[in-house]
């Protein structure tokens, strides 16, 4: 039921992208996302899309799998596009009852659609090729300078990795509890909104209890292993930049230069 969501999940396979340092991928994704917002220009989007396609090819992730990952945002995507089409003023090309579609609106909608799609796929690319542990690890290292201004960087990273770790567990648990209540005749589909909301009580109560139980167990286990925060903690596999990361940064700079050139002069 809930397992169809691919957004933000790690896809296990071997590729050059999987091997990259998580910091490289974080910076790369960040730069990529920014690059989508700097220019509004069809050529820029084509260039950005080709770059993403290249990454998909390198990553050995089946393109169909990438497309499936878009499912959760389809509604948002269509909604934004339609809205843009209808509210942008300009040269009218079609009038339906009180709604007018303008040429500028269509253009705007296409840009928005392309931007959103690339945005989600770009960030998916990162989470699909990086395990959550490495991701938070990379984030912790990138944010390390913030420690100087007393930001609890390690704690934030730890919270993130625990949360990420627990999402699939809690999804499984929800699935199991829902099935168990279905077996006792619960009905999650029929009825009006209030009835539907009420029917979730038999799922939410056990779910919360189990979440608290798990949190408690985890805290106990961490305590038992003498976890006491980030101070003086070392890592088994510290992150280290390798030659391939420098190549990746170089490609990123070239990409950025390409975007700027295209955005400026086309």
């Amino acid at each position: 039921m809930l397992r169809d969501i691919t957004l933000g999940q790690y896809y296990q396979t071997e590729s050059k992208l999987h091997e990259l340092d998580p910091r490289t991928k974080l910076v790369g994704t960040f730069v990529y996302l920014i690059s989508l917002f700097v220019f509004t220009n069809a050529y820029v989007y084509i260039f950005a899309a080709s770059f993403l396609l290249l990454c998909v090819l390198i990553s050995h992730i089946p393109p169909t799998y990438m497309i499936k990952g878009m499912k959760p945002i389809i509604f948002l995507l269509v909604f934004t596009m339609v809205l843009n089409m209808l509210v942008t003023p300009g040269e009218v090309i079609l009038t339906l009852w009180k709604l007018t579609i303008t040429k500028e609106g269509v253009k705007q909608a296409l840009y928005m659609g392309a931007r959103l799609t690339l945005l989600v796929m770009g960030s998916n690319m990162m989470t699909l090729t990086t395990t959550p542990t490495r991701l938070t690890n990379g984030l912790e290292r990138l944010m390390a300078p913030l420690k100087l201004i007393k930001v609890p960087v390690h704690e934030i990273a730890m919270m993130m990795s625990i949360a990420l770790r627990f999402i699939p567990i809690l999804m499984d648990e929800t699935d199991r509890i829902m099935k168990a209540q279905l077996a006792r005749g619960a009905d999650f589909e029929s009825g009006n909104l209030i009835k539907k909301a009420k029917s979730l009580v038999p799922v939410l109560v056990p779910l919360f209890i189990s979440a608290f139980r798990r949190a408690n167990d985890l805290a106990m286990a961490m305590e038992a292993r003498c976890y006491h925060g980030g101070k003086g903690r070392t890592q088994m596999k510290p992150l280290k930049y390798r030659p391939r990361d420098f190549v990746a940064y170089l490609i990123l700079i070239l990409y950025l230069a390409g975007i700027i050139l295209i955005g400026r002069y086309l």
Binding site: R176, I177, K179, A180, Q181, A183, R184, G185, A186, D187, V201, P202, V205, P206, I209, S210
Partner: peptide
């Protein structure tokens, strides 16, 4: 069907209400 670890699905305030859940549904 009684699931593995069925005690993890309990949610009502009393034992009696818990057992009434199925028949009512």
């Amino acid at each position: 069907l009684v699931f593995q670890y069925p005690e993890h699905q309990l949610f009502e305030d009393t034992v009696f209400n818990e057992v009434c859940f199925g028949p009512k549904n």
